[in-house]
Design a protein around this nucleic acid. Sequence first.
DNA 1: ACCTGAACACCGTTCAAGT
DNA 2: ACCTGAACACCGTTCAAGT
Lengths: 185, 185
Amino acid sequence: MALTRQDVLAAAVAILDEYGLADLSMRRLGDALGVRAGALYHHVPNKQTLLAWIADGVLASVPRPAAPWRPGLAAWAADLRAALLAHRDSAELVASARAMGLAENDAAADAAALLGAAGLPAPDAAAAASTLVHFVLGHVVQEQARLEWERFGKPDPDRAPTATQASFTLGVGLILDGIAAHLPR
Amino acid sequence: MALTRQDVLAAAVAILDEYGLADLSMRRLGDALGVRAGALYHHVPNKQTLLAWIADGVLASVPRPAAPWRPGLAAWAADLRAALLAHRDSAELVASARAMGLAENDAAADAAALLGAAGLPAPDAAAAASTLVHFVLGHVVQEQARLEWERFGKPDPDRAPTATQASFTLGVGLILDGIAAHLPR
DNA sequence: ACCTGAACACCGTTCAAGT
DNA sequence: ACCTGAACACCGTTCAAGT
């Protein structure tokens, strides 16, 4: 049977989860599917786009934020972090795809809309939403880099998982407090 | 005359500024210095470390934040952004080096100390400082990716430089307001 | 339409051998 | 000590040729 775009995507995610982004090459992906690397180009325009599709899949798994804005965005930030942590190196993947403008899923748009509905002027709402997204991505990129490092290095004891969780909650709280200060009271 | 570590670093920065991170290869760097790629390994342990040195150089050019904390951190965030914008693709470079734990310069430490002196408990100060750093890096990564894209693509008109500047100021203000809400009053 | 085989133009890194 | 020449083990992508 001929290969499907979905097969390629699924195999790519499997390699990502098991071996990490550095080991996700077109040749290796071809091997996993029993096909030459060149054959993949019948199903995917290029590697960059394939990675963007994976990023979109991760983002699509995040429930949209719901009113009221404050607990809604707190839960959304936690959901986004959880979705990223569910796939190895995916924070870097998503950050790259977003930076290159290849991610279809605009993660910040829903959050900005929620804040707009809560009374924040549009430019502030967009800036606030992207601040939150930058923080979550930056934080999880750091977390996953540490995980990669621990995977075959010394597990440095000075930063426990509880501390990284706590600093995430603190950072989100900080940003939400900043948003609250900008809302009409 | 024999090559110096400083020569290698300077040539690497020159290639980065002129051709971008994607074109900064050991072979190309060797060409620029009139030497084979293999010879570079007498002066640099590996490419990753070379990139980390460049990142540290960029960070070292940022003036340390000074009291009082609020205008001090606002100026510091702007200085950090300016230092990053001064070298092509350097935000991604710094973000990667930091994530891999290779950057000697801990950009957030001074900011955290400043906030500690202002009365913020240590864990909050560290979280606040790293929130600010994540935001600045994330924002400039996005800015520079857009610049790369415009360098040989369509200059999309829907996001002017003034808008990106404004959203930076808004994001920083948001975070500083969040910090203020956490300080003893 | 889908895939193979083979190539093209690259990578980072190592290392014997020369000076 | 520093560098060359050459290799090793890879990359992403293209494309004539087969089915």
